[in-house]
Write a protein that binds this DNA or RNA. Sequence first.
DNA 1: GCTGGATGCGCGAACGTTTGCGCATCGTTG
DNA 2: CAACGATGCGCAAACGTTCGCGCATCCAGC
Lengths: 343, 343
Amino acid sequence: MKDLPPKAPAPPEGRRTTIVTLSRQIGVAPSTISRALKGDTRISAETRARIARLAQELGYTPHASARTMSSGRSGLIGVVLGPPTNPFYTELLHEAVRQAAGRGMRLLVIHAGAGAIEDLTADALLQYQVDGCLMTSVELPSHVGAVCAANGVPVVMVNRVARLNCSAVTCDNRFGSRQLAELLVAQGRRRFALVRTSTSSSTGQERDQGFCEALQAMGLAPPRRLDGRSTHQGGYAAGQAIAALPPEQRPDAVFAVSDVMAMGVIDALRMAGLAAPRDMAVVGFDGLPAAAWPHYDLTTVEQPLPAMIGRALDLLRARMADRGLPDETVSLRGRLVVRGSSG
Amino acid sequence: MKDLPPKAPAPPEGRRTTIVTLSRQIGVAPSTISRALKGDTRISAETRARIARLAQELGYTPHASARTMSSGRSGLIGVVLGPPTNPFYTELLHEAVRQAAGRGMRLLVIHAGAGAIEDLTADALLQYQVDGCLMTSVELPSHVGAVCAANGVPVVMVNRVARLNCSAVTCDNRFGSRQLAELLVAQGRRRFALVRTSTSSSTGQERDQGFCEALQAMGLAPPRRLDGRSTHQGGYAAGQAIAALPPEQRPDAVFAVSDVMAMGVIDALRMAGLAAPRDMAVVGFDGLPAAAWPHYDLTTVEQPLPAMIGRALDLLRARMADRGLPDETVSLRGRLVVRGSSG
DNA sequence: GCTGGATGCGCGAACGTTTGCGCATCGTTG
DNA sequence: CAACGATGCGCAAACGTTCGCGCATCCAGC
C-alpha cells in the first residue's frame, strides 16, 4: 500500500467502487475481498494480490461509515483542545494530526477553547462512535469525561494528570522544574519569583511544587508568587509587577511555569527598561518554538511532544483493542534547553 | 431539543438506544420515529411529542454512521489547516469549531501544517464521506482539491482566493491595505518598506498590491520590499535588515502583510534599539489578539473572522444541499484598528 | 480407502438509519 | 352514496462492511 502510481482520483462510473464491485469483477465473495484487503492469511497470497491490484486500479476506498456500522470501530479520535492563547496546544494539535494519520486514525475536534463543553457538543462522541478521546484542555471537561466513562470510550489526557477513569501522558513536571531551579542556583541566583497559573491546572501545580521543593532542598527561601493566568498577557502583567518592585525587593530570577507566560514577563521587563538575563534571569517551561527566537532566547524545559503524542495514541490504541486494560499514567522527561535568558 | 434535563448519560442496558428501541416502545414503525425526530409534519404533533419525550428519556443519540450510510450525508466538514507558525490559523480553527457545532457540523482535521498533503491523508475525504471541505492553508493542497472536485465535494477556501472549482471567503485585502497606506501617509510617513510573503500566497499578493497601488495613487514611491516568509522569524529578520540600513536609507514606515511578521519586525527593531512608532511606524494585517498587547500595540486591519467563518459554512451548506450551485467568492471588509505602532 | 486436518473461500446476518412508495382511515364534497 | 383528497403511518429496500460459521477441496498418514 505504499508508493501508488498516480491513481485515478475517482472511477468514471457514477457509483462509488465498493467491495461488492470488486467481488463481482474478481469472482469471489465480498467477504473474501474484505479479508484479503486486511491481509488475512486465510486468503491465498495469489488471490490477495489480484484483489489488491484491482482495488488500486479502480481506486477503491473503504467506506468508513460502513465499517463503523459493522465493526463498531470508527477510526476517529475525539479531541478536546485547550484555548488558543497558549501556542502549546496548537503545537500539540499539529503533532497529533501528523501522528494519527500514520496510524490510520483521524481527529474529530469535539471542542476547542477555554469554555466548558456543552452537552450537545459532547454528543458527537456518541454520534460518531469515537474510538477514543484525547484531552488536552486545562479545565476538566466534565461532561465529556462522563460520556466516555459511561460508554467505555478510552480517554487519555495529555499534559494533565488523570482524573476520573482515564490514562494520562505528561511531561515530568517536577523533574523539569527542579532542573531549572538547580540551573538558576548554579548561576548564582538566590531571590526567586514564580509566575504560576490561576486555574487548577495540575501541570502548573506540579511545576510550582517541583521548583519550590528544589529551592527548599537547597536551603533557599520560597519564591514570591504571582498569577500569570496561563497567558502572555498574564505573564506580562506579572512582569510589570516585578519591574515595579523597588530594586532591593526585586527577584534575580523568575520562573514562569509556561513559556507563553515567560515571554510575557520578558516583554514586560523589556518595556520597563529591564532585560533578561542582565537584570534578572527568566526561565519557562514547554519548549515552544518561539522560545528559541533571538528575541526571547528563553531557557526552558522542552516537553517531548512527539513522544508524548506517540505514547498517548498508543495508550488509546491498546485500550480500544482491550477495554479493561487498567488506566496508565506515563511521565516523560523533558529536555533542559539552556539559552541566554537564564544568564 | 433545547434545555434538556440532566439526561441519563447512557441507558443502563448493554445495547445502545436506537430508533428501533424507540419504535418498539412506542408501537410505531422505525420510519415514523425517524421522521418524527426530524419534525416531519406528516407525523401528527401528538405522536411527535410522545416520541421526543421517550427519546430524551432513554438518552437516544442518532448513530452518525448509520445516517451517513443511508443518506449519504455525514455532517463532517474536512479541514485543511495552515502551519502552526501563524496564530491566525489557530484562531480560525477555534472559530470554526465553535460555529460548526452550532450548525450540527463537525470538523474532521484532514491535514495541518505547512507541508503538502499526502494521498493517504486526502483519502480521509472519501472514507469519511465529508460533506464539504474548508481549506485555509496558504499552499495549494493539490490532491485534496482534485479529490473534492472529482467527487462533488464542495470546497470553500478561507483567507485565500479560489483556485480550481471552489468558492472562497476572504477579507478585502486590497481595501484594507489601502486604508493602512492612507493612514500612514496621513500621519506624514513617506518612505515605505513592505515585508511580504515568499510563498505564492494570494492573500499576501493582494495586500502587497493594494498597498502599492494606494501609494502610487498618492504619488509616492513604491516601498522597499523584504521577504518575511510569513513567520515571526522572517519578520524579525526583515526588521533586522531594516534596522541595519544607514539611517538616511531607513524607511519611516513598515507594512508587514501579516501581523505575525509585523510583530517580528517590532521585536527586531526593539532589539536594535529602535522603537515603533518613534523611529518608524509599523503596521500589520490580520487582527490577531496579540496585536492588541501593550507590548506590540500594533495598528492593523482586523479580519472579520466570525463573519468569514459564518459565510464559509453557509456557502458549504448551500452547496451540500444543491451541488451545482455556481462557485462564489465572498470578500468581507476588515476593520482598521489604529493603535500606537502607527504613530 | 478412509479418517483427519489444513487450506481457501462463501453464506448470510447484522449494524442503525433514511426514504420512496403505498395503504388504510377519515372527513368532505358533488 | 360514491368518489376523492387529506392525514398519518407502515413496508421494505437500500447503504457498504465485518465476522461467525460452515463447507468444499486437497494432501498426508494409517
